[in-house]
Nucleic acid binder design. Structure first.
Lengths: 141, 141
DNA sequence: CGGGATCCGAGACGATACTG
DNA sequence: CAGTATCGTCTCGGATCCCG
């Protein structure tokens, strides 16, 4: 529909880390969205039904829960099992691959809990003094 | 500018994990954006100037680099040191708190590299068969 | 060299209504 | 109960211009 823009090829690779950067950003696009980690975390304790997930995460809309679960299922991180009963019942569970994600995520969660106070303190400090008076020498703010 | 909507307070806490959820999501909002981890990763090897960061990350615009650095500086994860020379020279470095973030992030990066192949395989499988014919019993797809 | 200001498109997200 | 469809909003992020 549109002419192919033909991305300009990477010119150089000053740090030699470009390949892994792409992979890492790819994963963070998946995991770093607003809800994925919370869903994975909830499923870490065991399989859950759709409604239980929705109740457990509190604040998520059924739309986002559906989209998040689809994405995770697509990436092979969760499985979807649907029982053709009435009323319908669908259970979600982590795959083995999904379980391996649980560890790094929990590490990050631990860091978040440990650092939350420090970060909020820093934010308060930053927000209250955006006043660097002109002086001589290197300016630290 | 707008009238305060006065968020309705949380009604219940079915899993007892709501508090940490907020903290984790808060951190992921900071770290899970498109560039923060890459900036932190680049600075992990040592302090860098603005232009070096821009060159090293490749693909980032100076706008996003500036915004990302401001955010990280605000949260106390990086320091900004500006030398009043001509031409101006600004160096960014990780704070001790920023260094503590490096570890969990690298774990996640390792997971990303290890799981990338599996994820892409799963994606391909999911994209090629969205065709569950109606059958009896629990349906796995 | 470093970075602020502005414009703009694309996608993420939420609320609601409807279906099987 | 477990979704899908549609809509409106809002933020993210890139391009560009300008300033110290």
């Amino acid at each position: 529909m549109s002419p192919p823009p033909a991305k300009p090829p990477r010119s150089k690779n000053p740090h030699g880390a470009t390949e892994s950067c792409l992979a890492v950003r790819d994963i963070l696009t998946r995991v770093g969205d607003k809800w994925s980690v919370l869903v994975v975390g909830s499923l870490g304790e065991g399989p859950l039904r759709f409604s239980d997930l929705k109740r457990g995460i509190e604040g998520i809309s059924q739309r986002m829960l559906t989209l998040t679960l689809r994405g995770l299922e697509r990436d092979g991180l969760v499985t979807r099992t649907q029982y053709p009963t009435v009323p319908p019942r669908v259970e979600y569970a982590l795959t083995p691959l999904g379980h391996t994600l649980l560890d790094p995520v929990q590490e990050l969660a631990r860091w978040a809990l440990e650092s939350r106070a420090a970060i909020q303190t820093a934010r308060g400090r930053y927000d209250t003094k955006p006043k660097p008076p002109p002086a001589s020498g290197p300016t630290r703010r």
